[in-house]
Computed example of a mutant assay.
Amino acid sequence: MPKFSIIIPTYEHTELLERALQSVITQNLVDWEVIISDDSISNDVKDYVESLRDERISYLKHNKGVTAAENWNFGMQAAKGDYMILMHHDEAFTVSTQLQCIAQAFETGVQVVVSNIEIEKDGKTSKGRPRWLKKLALRNPSLLLLCNAIGPTACVAFRQERKQPFNSQLSWLVDAEWYYRMLKGATTLFLENISIRSYHGHQGQLSLEMNALEAFKHDQATINKTHSSEPCVRYMTILYGCLIMRTKKIFCKR
């Protein structure tokens, strides 16, 4: 059994996938498997993966669903590793010892390990949210529904027994709601010196193609219904609507 399962859902982005995959292939001193969950229409991704001839990399064809999260869940179902990471095709590890460092963190007994984030856009690299905000959110996961202090899902490594599916009815807050469930009641460790690189601004980036206001309204209703017995969740989505979405709406009119 591999130590790590890296799930990479993808759709018609072979070039991005190649960069993500290469960052995994360079990982040393730790056994891993990669599961490519592909809901592309073409066979480009399939052909590329088969050309690698690497038994550690599995290709799964997923019939495209209504939401991207359905593809994410499809890939996670096949994972066999002790620890799991869901890495989108526009993300990558930054050092060859990344999985080794995460494995050492798990040896302390924690259930979830959170890495830092580097954002690359237009050739420039920036950091994510400040350290204090990340640590506050890890202690109070409901805050992630107001502000995603973590970043993309590749920043979160978790034990197999901690695995939970994404809510495929969500789109705008799908990461944040998953983080809330994943981190609630979990023992966690934040690795400030280990980062995931996330590439922004490319064609096909999901967040750029959505109508944020409409997606949020739908997600807010779904989350409040799912977590109806948890007042803190409702408060956070109300605040998000008032503070974040109202600001977006103002700027969209300009």
Rank of each mutant, 00 (worst) to 15 (best):
S58Y: 13
F158I: 11
I25Q: 13
K134R: 04
Q111N: 12
G109Y: 09
K46V: 03
P152T: 07
S198R: 03
G204N: 07
F166M: 11
M210N: 06
T187S: 04
I250L: 06
T188Q: 13
S51I: 00
Q100V: 12
N211K: 10
T67R: 03
H62N: 04
K217D: 14
R181I: 09
M84H: 10
K124Y: 12
S23M: 07
Q104I: 02
A69G: 00
L146W: 04
C147M: 08
Q220Y: 01
L86I: 13
T187W: 00
V174Y: 05
F190P: 13
F251C: 11
P141W: 06
P231R: 05
P9V: 01
K80N: 14
A212Y: 02
F74I: 01
N167P: 14
N71Y: 08
R246K: 14
D90S: 06
G185F: 11
I41D: 09
H202T: 02
A137N: 07
A78H: 08
E214L: 10
V233W: 08
L170V: 12
Q22R: 10
M182Y: 11
L208D: 14
I244A: 06
T97E: 12
L143G: 01
E118P: 04
I119E: 02
M236D: 06
T237E: 14
I117M: 13
A105R: 07
W172H: 07
S195Y: 14
P165W: 04
S171C: 13
M236Y: 11
A20P: 05
P2M: 02
K121L: 15
I223P: 00
I250P: 02
W72C: 07
A92H: 08
M210S: 03
V112F: 03
L213N: 02
Y235C: 15
M182I: 09
